[in-house]
Design a protein around this nucleic acid. Sequence first.
RNA 1: CGCGGGGUGGAGCAGUCUGGUAGCUCGCGAGGCUCAUAACCUCGAGGUCGCAGGUUCAAAUCCUGUCCCCGCCA
Length: 697
Amino acid sequence: MTRKILVTAALPYANGHIHLGHLVEYIQTDIWVRFQKLRGHRCAFLCADDTHGTAIMMRARQEGRSEDALIADMRDAHLHDFTRFDVAFDNYGSTNSPENLALCGEIWSSLRQAGLVVEEDVTQLFDVEAGTFLADRFVKGTCPKCGSADQYGDNCDKCGATYSPSDLKNPVSTLSGSIPELRSAKHLFVRIETLHDFLNEWTQDGEHLQPEVANYLKGHFLQDPLRDWDVSRPAPYFGFPIPDSPGNYWYVWFDAPIGYMASLAEWCKRHGESFDDWWPRGADAETRGAEIHHFIGKDITYFHTLFWPAMLKAAGFKLPRQVHIHGFLTVDGEKMSKSKGTFVRASTYVKHLDPAFLRYFYASKLSAKLDDLDMNLDEFADKVNSDLVGKVVNLASRSARFVQPTGLSPVYPEDGGLFAQAAAEGEAIASAYDHLDYNTAMRLVMGLADRANKYIDEQAPWTLKKDPSQAGRLRDICTVTLNLFRQLAVYLAPVLPRLAEQAGELLHSPIRHWSDAQTPLAGTPVGEFQHMLKRVDKAQVLKMIEESREEAPGQATPASVPGVGAPGTATSPPTTDGPEALAAEPLSATCTFDDFAKVDMRVARVVAAEDLAESNKLLRLTLSLGGDDRRNVFAGIKGVYEPASLVGRLVILCANLAPRKMKFGVSEGMVLAAGPGGKDIFILAPDSGAVPGQRVH
RNA sequence: CGCGGGGUGGAGCAGUCUGGUAGCUCGCGAGGCUCAUAACCUCGAGGUCGCAGGUUCAAAUCCUGUCCCCGCCA
C-alpha cells in the first residue's frame, strides 16, 4: 500500500550557518525520506528558513542592511550547504513568506475564536539606546543568588539558579552596553492549559512520541497546570504584525512551526496539489491527508510536543503522526567547541571531505533514541575507509574490470544462495530504516558486504583469468559479485544516493526502487570502472579542524553584538536618497580594469582594537587575514567606533597598500570606509558568509 | 531519592524484552592472496559482561542493593 507522507525537518535559523550538528538532523531526515520514496511511497520533504526575531533584527542592524537582504543571503547559503550534502527538500520556504502570513492569520483567528488568547502585562528590561525590549539572553549581570558576575538574564551557570531578568543585579544590555530600564507592555498569551487533557492523551498514548520524551513531558510539564504561552512581542520586532493588535508582532516561535505548513502550501502550488489533501482541517481531518512526521532536536522538544499540537488541535488541523527527536552531536566525546575547532561548518567540511562520508558515518551511529551522537574523528576515518571503501566499493573495484569486455552472464549463475539470502534480508534492513535504526541497517549491510568479499576470495577470479578455458566461469563469478554489490548499493541508496547512481551507471541499470535488490541483473553490459569514493585522508580531517579553529573569533571577545549604537545603523530602507553626497565628492577619472586589479582588497577580521591615548583620531587595529596572517592597521575612526564594538567583526582591508610609518608604528593597510569624515564614517562590511582572506573582486 | 541514557576484551557496539556458560566491526599479532583505493581472506591473542548479594539445574540476560560515567534553557 502506498503511503502518503509529509516530512519536516526543523527550520534552521537565519542567523547562522549550517554546521555538522545541524546536519545530524537533516541527514537523518533525508535518509528517511529517500528510504520512503525508494519504497514507492509518496513523500513531501519540507523545510524553510526560520527568519524572524530579535536576533535577526539586531544582526541586520549590525550589518547595516535590511532584514530581507540578510535572510535572503542566509537562505542561499543554507540551501547551498544542503545541496552539497545531498539533503533534497521537495520545498524550501521561508517563514517570512505570504503563505506563512496567511496561515498565521488563520490559526490566530481560530485561537481567538476558541477564546484561547488572553492579554497580560509583562514587565521586561528595555534597552533605551537600542530601542528594544531585551530577551533574556541579551541581558547580563550579577546573579541575585550567588553573586557571580557576567550571567545571563534567565539563569546562572555558576550556581544553577533560575530567575527573571528583572531580578538580575547590575543588568547590562549586551546589545548596546547600556543599562536597561524596566518597562511594561501588553503581551498576548495562548492559554494552552485549556488543552491539558488533550495533551495528556496525545503525548502519553505511545503513538506519537518516543517513550523517553513522553515520560519527560509528563514529569516536567504535564503534572502541573500549563503556563500561558507568550506569543507576542512589542515593536520594534522583525516578524509579522498581529492584525488585531497594533504594535505587536507574533513571537518567532509562533510562526516558525506554521512555516512547515507554509512550505507545504508553496509546494502544493508548484505541483498542482491540494493543501487539504496533505494537511487537512476539520472534523474528519484525522482520517484524511498525509501522515505527518516532524524531525527535531531535543532542544526544541516542548515547542513541538506541547505548543504545536495544541495550536493544531485548537485550529482543527490534522495532528502529527509522530515527532522524532534526536540528540546532539559531540566531537571526540565533547560538545562542539569553536576554540577547539570542532564547531565545523558545513561549508568548511566540504572543502576537505566528501559529504558521503558524513552521511554514512552518521547513519552508522544513529538510532531512534535521543542519545547524543559522538563523532570520534579517528573512528570516522577508520569506519568510512574500512566499510565503504574496503568492503562495499571494493566489490565493484575487484570484479568490474574482468567483465567489462563481455558484460554480465546471460543467465544469473549459481551462487550458493548468496543473492537470495541478501534479498531476503532486505525486509529486515527496511524495517531498521523505517524505525530510524540506521545503525542496525548499516550493520546488516556490512555483514552482507563481508560475505560477498569472502565469496570472491574463495572463487579467486584472478586465477581463472589466467586460463582461457575458464572464461565463462570467470564471467559468472563477476556477475555474482557485481549483483551482490548492486544489492548493497540499493540498500545504501537512502544514505549514499551518489553511490547508487554510480552503481546504476556502471551496470547500465539505474536503481529506482527498493525491490531492485530482489532480482539479479543478467546479460547486461558493464561500464568502465571508475573510483566511486576516495579514502578519508586523516590529514584532511585535521585541516578541517584547523580551519574551523581559525574561523572562530577570539575567545576573549565579550558576547556582544558589535557595532550597535555606532553611527549609521538606521534600519529603515532608504527611500529618498539625495544628491548631496555625490556632489560633495565628485567621481574620479575613469580607471582601467588593470588599474582596479592592482588594488588588492581582502576580507579581514578585527581581532584586537586599541584606543591610542596620544592620538585624537586613530585606533590601532589588529586584523586577521586567516591563519597566522596578522596586520597592524591604524584607522582614523577614534570617537566614531568603540574599539570593543569592532572586535570580532569583518571589515574590508586594502591589503597591498604600501606600508606607512606613522607616529605610533607602521600601518600595514587600510580599512575601507565610506563617508565624508568627522563623525560620519561608515566601515564597510561583507555580507555574512565571507571569511577572512577572501579577495574582493 | 530531579529526569533520562549508559557501564560487555584497546576502541565502537550487538546480545538483556522471550535466562542455557559471549558475538560483531575496528585495532593488534601471525600467515595467505595479489583482482582491488596498503584494499581482501584465514588463524590467533585479548573479556570472571561496573560491583555485591539473591532467584534458578543454569544469569551478561530476572530480582534487590550499590558504585561510576554521560546528557538535560532536553
